[in-house]
């Protein structure tokens, strides 16, 4: 099928995009890579009257070094996140997670910002951003504001973004020298995560000094496993010690039950995948 008719705008600056957005009200949709939006428009599950394409705003694309953080433009496609030397060096788990998204064609178009704004609970980008304590920079009619990842994801497909706002860039505190691993569990090719775990670990002399862990698809939003992070600090980086430290990772989560597995199965998976992710991230 083809989408319903709409007015199309391709602004060249964020200011112009904001003006168009304000003018169109709730009839408008921002178009980033289109890899989530166009499929639902094709199925006519979405029928915006105005589409504002962010694809021509050069300022929104690319990764830069900003001292304590790296800054990733919202319109940076997944494959550029994967190939970025800065991301690889300072936020390894993010680069690994981006490499697991969909398939090569979708990674060439789909964007980092679009995946975060879309906030699919099974999406792979939110958990690593949460684990690394990322901040989302948002522009609206009233200027710019910054929201911590922990406050950005509010519910299924729902974020702190207002209808008149644009996610412009994401700041990721540098985790230089940390190991990172994204452990994604799927059954078939090109599948969304049934459960996945993002882990960043700093290890010294065979022992974990600090860990960051977040879970994908264990509830309506990505979940930071802070109790497990504390239990991991000081733990030897071996399978038995890590298994014990992460055993309770699913406590307090409410994972979905669906065709891919029921909630109990997902809780079991979460512990197994966390152990694997943490061990891989600590180089063990």
């Amino acid at each position: 099928m083809i989408p319903t008719e709409f007015d199309y705008h391709a602004p060249e600056s964020v200011d112009e995009a904001l003006r168009l957005l304000a003018g169109a009200g709730d009839e408008a949709k921002l178009l980033a890579g289109g890899q989530s939006l166009l499929p639902v428009m094709r199925l006519r599950m979405a029928a915006p009257e105005v589409v504002i394409d962010l694809g021509r705003i050069e300022a929104l694309r690319g990764v830069r070094d900003d001292g304590e953080s790296i800054v990733i433009g919202a319109m940076t496609p997944h494959f550029e996140v994967v190939e970025s030397a800065l991301v690889h060096e300072h936020a390894l788990v993010l680069s690994e997670a981006a490499a697991t998204v969909a398939d090569p064609q979708v990674r060439h178009r789909g964007t980092f910002g679009g995946a975060l704004a879309h906030a699919d609970p099974a999406g792979d980008m939110p958990a690593p951003v949460l684990a690394l304590g990322g901040e989302l920079v948002i522009q609206g009619p009233g200027g710019q504001r910054t929201v911590a990842a922990a406050d950005f994801f509010e519910d299924y497909f729902t974020t702190a973004l207002g209808e008149d706002e644009i996610l412009t860039e994401i700041r990721i505190p540098k985790h230089t020298g940390w190991g990172g691993h994204y452990e994604k569990f799927t059954r078939v090719a090109q599948q969304w995560s049934i459960v996945a775990v993002a882990a960043a670990v700093r290890a010294e002399g065979g022992s974990i000094t600090e860990a960051r862990v977040a879970l994908t698809n264990m509830g309506s939003v990505p979940i930071r496993a802070t109790a497990v992070e504390q239990a991991l600090a000081g733990t030897p980086a071996d399978a038995d010690s890590v298994r014990a430290a992460v055993a309770a990772v699913a406590e307090g989560t409410s994972p979905p039950s669906d065709i891919n597995g029921d909630a109990d199965y997902r809780r079991h998976l979460a512990a197994v995948l966390t152990r694997r992710a943490v061990l891989a991230a600590s180089g063990a």
């Binding site: 391709a10 178009l31 289109g34 094709r42 090569p104 064609q105 979708v106 060439h108 178009r109």
Partner: peptide, 20 residues
């Protein structure tokens, strides 16, 4: 699948106007 500026993309998930 086609190539857009040398990279593979799914031409069913792209608007013609985006290739301007």
């Amino acid at each position: 699948t086609v190539h857009l500026d040398g990279r593979s993309v799914k031409s069913c998930s792209l608007l013609a106007v985006q290739t301007d």
